[in-house]
Computed example of a mutant assay.
Amino acid sequence: MKVLIAIDGSNFSRDALQWYLKAIHTPGNKVILVHVTNHLHNFAYNTSIIPGDPELIRLAYQEEEHKAKAIIDEAKEFIGKHQIDGEVVRLFGNPGEQIVKKAEDIEATLVITGSRGLGTIRRTVLGSVSDYVIHHSHVPVIVYQHH
């Protein structure tokens, strides 16, 4: 089985990854952990940025890069610690679109994502990565939500 697991550094994605390891993983599975950076979305919803201030934009970009590196490093450590046949991939753009495209490109047999549990209004306004993946993926999708 080839499994794509979306990671974003949140406890929700960590929980989904732990759940996969306990409930589904078997030796021989190939696991691709995918982190998607969406600078445009992050900047659009960051109210601390003054439009047109290059220094603040540069600092915000550096902060996003620092966060992404930490997520990637944590994911690589997880794969190594649990001796998983897998890799960590970083993509850029709209997370839902990139996850679905990567799943198609690698011919994944399953996609797993965590759910942040956004309220109805926030999900409607901001969109939901898991909603997008569910509706556009050509393979089964598990949305893990810890209760």
Rank of each mutant, 00 (worst) to 15 (best):
Q83T: 08
Y132F: 15
K76M: 05
H35N: 15
E64C: 07
Q145N: 12
N46K: 07
E74I: 00
P95F: 06
L4C: 04
L21W: 08
I72Y: 11
T113Y: 01
N46W: 10
D8F: 10
F12S: 15
K101V: 08
V34L: 12
F92H: 14
H138A: 02
Q145H: 14
V88P: 00
D73L: 12
G127D: 08
L17K: 03
G52E: 00
T113I: 15
N46D: 15
V89F: 01
L110M: 03
L33T: 10
N29K: 00
E107R: 14
A6C: 12
E64H: 04
P95R: 05
V3I: 13
E65R: 10
N38P: 00
H39S: 12
R14A: 10
I7L: 04
L56N: 03
E77T: 14
Q145I: 04
S130H: 05
V31L: 07
L110N: 02
I134M: 07
S48L: 03
I134T: 01
N38Y: 09
H146D: 09
W19N: 01
V129D: 14
W19C: 04
L56C: 01
G114T: 12
S130T: 08
V111W: 00
V3S: 03
K22L: 01
P27L: 01
I71N: 02
P140R: 10
T124Q: 04
R58L: 11
H66M: 04
G96T: 02
I57T: 13
S115K: 03
G114W: 12
T109L: 01
V100R: 03
I24S: 00
Y132R: 12
H39P: 09
G86C: 09
A68P: 00
I57A: 09
K67P: 00
N46T: 14
E87D: 13
T37I: 12
I32R: 01
T124D: 02
H146W: 09
L91K: 11
L118R: 15
G80W: 02
